[in-house]
Structure formats: C-alpha cells, structure tokens
C-alpha cells in the first residue's frame, strides 16, 4: 500500500487492526487493508493463512476480538450480517449456497426483491415481483446464462451454479464484493467462464478476490495481498509479488515459476 501512489478518494472499505483468536491460535493478527472504489485486490496465502476467517469477519459470520471495519465511513463491526449486506458489503461463497429447488431466475429475483424492500410484501406484489423477474433476467443475460433462467438450480451444470453465485451477488448492487474462490471446483478446461464473468463485473465495485488458482488471481488482480499465519506479509502489484523472494519461499515454493 505504502509503495503505491495515494488516491484522493476515500476507501470504500477500511479494515483497521483486525484481530481474531480461536483459543490460543491467532487466526487474524492485526490485519489492515483499504479497498477503494474500483479496486481489484487479490488475497492469497497458504492453507490456514486465515483468508476465509477474514471474509467471515468482514461479513459478520464471526465477531472480531479487536479492530475496526469501516464501510463508507461507518463502523460496521457491530452490525449483523444482513445489515452489512444492506449497506453494500456482499460476498459469494466458496461452496455453492443456492436455493436448489428454485429456478435460476427466481434465485436472483429473490435477491432483487430483498434489495428493493419488496420481500415483506404479501398481498399486493404483482408489478413489483414482475420488475424483480425482469431485473433478474437482465442480470443473468449480462453473465450470458439467461437462457437457463427457467431451470431449477439442482439441474444446472456446476459451472452455471458458480456463475449464479456471482449473479446473485451482483443483483444486490454491492459497493464491495468479496469473491470467495469463485473458481473453486471448476475444471481448468472450463475456467474461462469464470474469467469472462470477472471481466464483466462493473468497474466501480471494489472487489476482494480470494482464490487458490494462482493463474486466475494474477490475471485478474491489480494488486495482491499475501496473508501468512493470519498476518499481512506484503502487498504489491502482481509482478512484484511474483518476484518477491519471501512470498516465493512461504507460498509458491522455491522451484515454482509464476
């Protein structure tokens, strides 16, 4: 961060000295990060580095022991998970977390209804629900999967389910999007569908990408933060990270070429 030219605009998401212990194990050690609008930050680190814990702290699945999370100038670490979503902090899941009995379009439409505040409506809802369906359709069309909108999620191929995770998140119009291993489980021959989806993400959203697939991270991220044993080891542009001997030692292994 410090090595990079400072931006004038304020960060949309700031993490300040975030700490979390599981008993004696410090899984998050004073992590600080800034995400500006339009950021494309990759978060990498070996297994057990605390990447998923960090996502869970940000989304409200876990409560931090110390530190602040500031979204758009508001301290959100005390807010419930659903309140953070309403303020524009949205995640996708490493393991598909979908409504498998609903159609693809309904999955997105339910998210749209929730965002627009229609989800409490019971007796008068026709035009509103129709608008949700239309927006959901447009969202799926953007990711190129609208033709499967009427199919039940349980019948969809795995790759389309991964795209649906992203489509639902986008339907919530996030300011900050946490992508938790969007390529997880996708065979390398099909990984281009995730690449294409990531390219289409709206430019103004700040994105934190957590991913095991190094190729995907290095293609997508403009900056990369390396997390080791719960602490930030270094942050830099992909080329610097690839050359950094420390990173290669702890993460990539001495013999591996990037």
């Amino acid at each position: 961060m410090r090595a990079l030219p400072s931006r004038e605009e304020a960060p949309v998401l700031s993490i300040r000295g975030l700490c979390k212990n599981f008993g004696a194990l410090a899984v998050t050690q004073s992590v600080s990060l800034d995400l500006h609008p339009g950021a494309r930050l990759g978060l990498i680190g070996p297994n057990g580095a605390g990447k998923t814990t960090l996502v869970n702290l940000l989304t409200g699945m876990l409560t931090p022991d110390a530190g602040d999370i500031i979204l758009n100038g508001e301290y959100i670490e005390k807010l419930k998970a659903e309140q953070r979503v309403k303020r524009g902090l949205v995640r996708t899941h490493q393991i598909n977390t979908l409504l498998t009995e609903h159609t693809m379009r309904d999955n997105v439409a339910i998210a749209v209804a929730e965002r627009l505040g229609y989800a409490w409506r019971t007796l008068r809802f026709g035009p509103q629900w129709r608008a949700c369906q239309e927006e959901a359709h447009a969202q799926l069309a953007e990711l190129g999967v609208a033709q499967a909108g009427d199919r039940r999620v349980s019948e969809l191929p795995y790759g389309q389910q991964r795209l649906l995770e992203i489509a639902i998140a986008l339907a919530l119009k996030p300011k900050v999007l946490l992508l938790d291993e969007p390529g997880a489980g996708i065979p390398s021959t099909e990984s281009h569908i995730i690449d294409e989806a990531l390219e289409k993400l709206p430019a103004e959203i700040a994105i934190l990408l957590i991913e095991h697939d190094m190729d995907l991270v290095f293609r997508f991220a403009k900056k990369i933060t390396v997390l080791v044993q719960g602490a930030v080891l270094t942050t830099g542009v992909p080329a610097e990270i690839a050359k950094n001997p420390e990173v290669r030692a702890v993460y990539l292994g001495r013999s591996q070429q990037v």
Binding site: A81, E82, H93, L98, L99, I110, A119, W129, C132
Partner: peptide
C-alpha cells in the same frame, strides 16, 4: 397470496438455505 408473494418465496428460501438468505440481506 402469501406463498406466491416475495414474502412467501423468501420463506421458502429460508427453508432451503438460511445461509443464502442471510447473504442476500434477509432478516
């Protein structure tokens, strides 16, 4: 009307996957 409404559908969603519903901001 309830089961066809966005309200009813969100409850159908909660039955299927409460985690998903929390992740889209459902109380």
């Amino acid at each position: 009307r309830i089961v066809k409404s966005p309200f009813g559908r969100s409850l159908d969603g909660i039955r299927q996957n409460p985690r998903r519903m929390r992740a889209i901001g459902t109380p």
